[in-house]
């Protein structure tokens, strides 16, 4: 029985599991099918929704991408964070400033905003990722709050009034501004899809596996000879870029950014969307994010602004009913419970 025969025999029996890195996900063909269906539904939304709910959907997508960046750190790398709003804000404010002073091209804003988020993440992460657990969580809280307070006091970006007067984006430089709600929404959707795909690719890469190694046993990973500090820093920087991209999408959708969008509330909701959706699965947290926006902003409109109350109830129920988050509903557990802080 030669090694080659055994190996090829194995891959024939279990298609897909040994080809790409096994993140524990079953039946990849089915998952791809579901993903395509969901994407088609999202693309079709402008034909079904009025402008206001459509704008909520756009905001949900931008928030969802922020939540994906939080999940990269929390669920994949096992380092829960409250600081991604800082990089989200960096991307958003940068995109806004670019929009006002430089170019209203969404593509340009996306590029520069993502870089801004990544750069800030690299700077702060160099120090932050030396810590772990609750200390890391608190440091990211401090980072988020410092960013929040920073933009709140900077008059050049509007201080507490926020940055207004951002012109509507066009896709390419010098192109038509996307004033039609449906087109704008499609741009936001495009940014979300790009960002989400980047996260999925990262998850299936060697770095993604190393990140999960950090989550499951950083000491062991070091004993294998890996430099875990650089794994963490690279991952943190990429997550910062994703958050920055989310910020540009947010600004494109709302044409406004204020310090409140980087506040503790936002940070806490982002982290809890991850928990609600199922940390580590990437798609679960997106559903969690959608649920949060849906309950708080959409349903809240129907029950006289008591959306936050309903959201609180949803959170409490979810803790008992969905112990592994939305992603854990499907029988087989994708991974063991997210690591304790």
């Amino acid at each position: 029985m030669s090694a080659t025969n055994t190996l090829s025999g194995l891959t024939a029996d279990q298609p897909g599991t040994t080809k790409l890195f096994n993140t524990g996900a079953p039946r990849p063909a089915f998952r791809l099918f579901v993903a395509v269906v969901i994407l088609l539904i999202l693309v079709a939304l402008p034909f079904f929704l009025a402008p206001y709910p459509l704008s909520l959907a756009g905001r949900a997508l931008a928030f969802g991408l922020l939540v994906v960046s939080v999940d990269l750190l929390t669920g994949v790398m096992g380092m829960p964070s409250l600081g991604q709003v800082a990089y989200f804000g960096a991307g958003a404010y940068t995109a806004g400033l670019v929009g006002i002073h430089l170019s209203s091209s969404g593509l340009v804003q996306l590029l520069i905003g993502t870089l801004a988020g990544a750069a800030l993440a690299l700077l702060t992460g160099a120090v932050a990722v030396r810590t772990a657990g609750i200390v890391f969580l608190m440091i990211t809280l401090a980072i988020g709050e410092l960013a929040h307070i920073g933009v709140d006091s900077l008059s050049v970006v509007g201080a507490s009034n926020g940055l207004a007067g951002i012109p509507p984006v066009s896709v390419l430089p010098g192109g038509e501004p996307l004033t039609v709600p449906g087109y704008l929404y499609w741009w936001v959707l495009a940014v979300f899809v790009i960002g989400f795909c980047a996260a999925v690719i990262l998850n299936r890469s060697p770095l993604g596996r190393s990140m999960r190694g950090v989550r499951d046993g950083e000491l062991r990973l070091r004993a294998l000879g890996q430099n875990t500090y650089s794994v963490k820093l690279i991952a943190y920087t990429i997550a910062g870029g994703v958050a920055g991209a989310a910020g540009t999408a947010w600004v494109a959708q709302t044409q406004f950014i204020s310090p409140g969008d980087l506040g503790f509330d936002m940070a806490a909701f982002a982290l809890l969307s991850v928990v609600l959706g199922g940390a580590g699965s990437l798609w679960g947290p997106v559903i969690g994010a959608g649920l949060v926006i849906f309950v708080r902003d959409w349903l809240g409109g129907y029950i006289e602004g008591r959306g936050t109350l309903l959201l609180g109830v949803v959170f409490v129920i979810a803790v008992y009913v969905l112990p592994r988050g939305v992603a854990g509903i499907k029988g087989r557990s994708l991974r063991r419970k997210s690591s304790d802080s």
């Binding site: 890195f21 890469s205 770095l207 596996r209 990429i238």
Partner: peptide, 8 residues
């Protein structure tokens, strides 16, 4: 190989 390559 390259343990820190962020794409497959």
């Amino acid at each position: 190989s390259q343990p820190k390559r962020p794409w497959p």
